[in-house]
């Protein structure tokens, strides 16, 4: 369960100050897929960064599994991210010069997963996105859709509880995007993980259990969160 309490994030100072998130509060139950919707500049990415501990709002709490990640030490937050979260980005951020295998192995290395377990986990993740045959190929030789599938493999390899996806299909055509979405949603459903998708794509948002609309840094509407929470 992720509880966001009253977070506010401001950029700049004094007259240049810009409030990116203005006292946002909500609770996301476990095993939920949530879409954060908003126009560009609405603060939806900042919200995601705050929820993942990448950014630190000056006010508020982000409680994940009973721990307020905003009061944790940087090392603890890093450890938290390495073991419990993962990310998927619009522009993939796969390491073009490295093999698919090494790309997927990175989160395991960061999380200090022992050598012996890595191979099996990496191959399972690659198999889940149907890229096992590309294990030794360099990431640069993959197509856009394959790159995002590789990114998904990287995101799921360490079996995270929460996956943050920032416009995961923004750089893909709709057919490829749909395939990528399927992989993502299948994994989340199978594992009972939480998926938080930042998007402005209504279609993608409709596939999620819940949605949070954000406008000018303020949460304008939420849907589906309470219903799930009561369950």
């Amino acid at each position: 369960m992720i509880t966001v309490k009253n977070i506010t994030k401001t950029y700049g100072r004094k007259q240049n100050a810009f409030v990116a998130i203005d006292s946002a509060s909500f609770t996301i139950p476990d095993a939920t897929t949530v879409a954060i919707l908003g126009k560009s500049g609405s603060g939806k990415s900042t919200l995601m960064h705050a929820m993942s501990g990448l950014d630190r709002p000056e006010v508020g709490e982000v409680v994940i599994d009973g721990q307020d990640i905003l009061t944790m030490k940087p090392k603890e937050v890093d450890r938290f991210r390495a073991t419990k979260m993962s990310f998927i980005f619009q522009s993939f951020f796969v390491q073009a010069n490295e093999s698919c295998y090494d790309n997927v192995s990175l989160p395991l290395e960061i999380a200090k997963v022992p050598w012996a377990e890595r191979k099996q986990k990496v191959e399972a993740a690659l198999a889940a996105v149907q890229l096992l045959d590309k294990k030794k190929s360099r990431a640069r030789d993959l197509s856009g859709g394959q790159k995002q599938r590789l990114a998904i493999a990287r995101a799921i390899v360490n079996e995270p509880q929460i996956i943050f996806a920032d416009e995961p299909t923004g750089n893909l055509d709709s057919a490829t995007g749909a395939v990528v979405e399927d992989f993502l949603f299948n994994y989340v459903k199978e594992r009972g993980a939480t998926l938080i998708v930042v998007t402005h794509d209504e279609e993608l948002a409709n596939k999620c259990d819940a949605r949070i609309d954000i406008k000018d840094g303020k949460i304008s509407a939420t849907k589906g969160l309470d219903r799930k929470a009561k369950k």
Partner: peptide, 16 residues
């Protein structure tokens, strides 16, 4: 820069 950013996002510590 992007690679470093990614590694940090994935939980790699400053020291590492």
């Amino acid at each position: 820069t992007q690679q470093i950013g990614l590694m940090k996002a994935l939980g790699m510590s400053q020291t590492d």
